[in-house]
């Protein structure tokens, strides 16, 4: 993938293995400071401060309505599309304020990819689903398109299953394949950060396992933030875990600590299944 010449921001070197206690302090790629968000007059996020380290999987957990998806959508400014959203505080990638003056949300989204809860392939062919993303970024040459489409599908562990039907409709794929196609589409344009909003919640256990394996593979190349309802999933695949409750960040630490020795009672109650 390294020979693909698409516009790209150089990343800091991967962080060392998660150090207990300090959740990526100092080396964070993505950082929020005092971030609050309102939908109209309803406050969805309260003063969130956290740093997401590069080349790690960070899981956002918490009961429904705790603001974890909302926070995720601040990272690629997808909340901009909703009327009456107001944001206070700072979100920065590698020190650059995402909401600063002169920041182009379109450019930002080319560097922060997203995979959604409900797989949403375009009603086009498998090939065109990925080629669409590449053409948006100015890649038009047929041979290069073919190459990157193959690389992306391989990267999403889908190539072997679809290589003989690239030009058939993506809607003919199974749910798990569709979701992996969406991942292929997202990584095709080589973002730095990959946001995943409950990417496996609509899939069966086998398809879920494949997505989880894929996520572990992808973290070599991308910084991944994943929202999940599935506690076991967070424990299996993430290096760091943030627990949210009612729009507040209750605890953020290495996944091992959050699940074995959380510092907050609420976190312990949630991860042990006493509420939520």
């Amino acid at each position: 993938m390294d020979d693909v010449s698409l516009p790209k921001v150089r990343l800091p070197e991967p962080a060392p293995e998660p150090s207990p206690g300090g959740a990526g302090a100092g080396e964070a790629l993505l950082r929020t400071e005092g971030l609050s968000l309102w939908y109209g007059s309803a406050r969805a996020l309260h003063n969130i401060t956290l740093g997401i380290p590069p080349h790690r999987v960070t899981a956002f957990i918490g009961p429904s309505g705790c603001g974890k998806s909302t926070l995720l959508r601040c990272f690629n400014r997808l909340n901009d599309l909703i009327d009456h959203v107001r944001i206070e505080g700072r979100v920065a990638i590698a020190g650059h304020d995402l909401y600063g003056p002169g920041v182009d949300a379109i450019e930002l989204r080319k560097r922060v990819g997203m995979v959604f809860q409900k797989s949403n392939p375009f009603p086009k062919s498998i090939y065109e689903n990925i080629a669409y993303a590449l053409r948006l970024h100015g890649l038009r040459e047929r041979r290069r398109l073919d190459e990157v489409v193959e690389q992306s599908l391989r990267g999403a562990a889908l190539w072997d299953e679809v290589k003989d039907r690239l030009h058939r409709s993506a809607l003919g794929l199974s749910g798990g394949q569709q979701q992996r196609l969406c991942i292929a589409r997202a990584i095709a344009i080589q973002p730095d950060i990959l946001l995943m909003d409950e990417p496996a919640s609509a899939l069966d256990p086998i398809a879920t396992a494949r997505i989880e394996d894929l996520i572990l593979e992808l973290k070599q190349r991308f910084t991944i933030v994943i929202v999940t309802h599935n506690m076991q999933q967070a424990a299996r695949i993430s290096d760091y875990t943030a627990f949210f409750y009612l729009g507040e960040l209750i605890e953020f630490d290495t996944t091992r600590r959050v699940f074995t020795n959380p510092s907050q009672q609420q976190t312990e109650d949630y991860v042990t299944g006493r509420f939520g």
């Binding site: 080319k110 990819g113 959604f116 409900k118 949403n120 948006l136």
Partner: peptide, 15 residues
């Protein structure tokens, strides 16, 4: 049309 289609396209950096 599913709103997911629009989001998918915008999230890829489409205008």
């Amino acid at each position: 049309l599913s709103p997911g289609l629009r989001e998918a396209s915008l999230a890829l950096g489409a205008t």
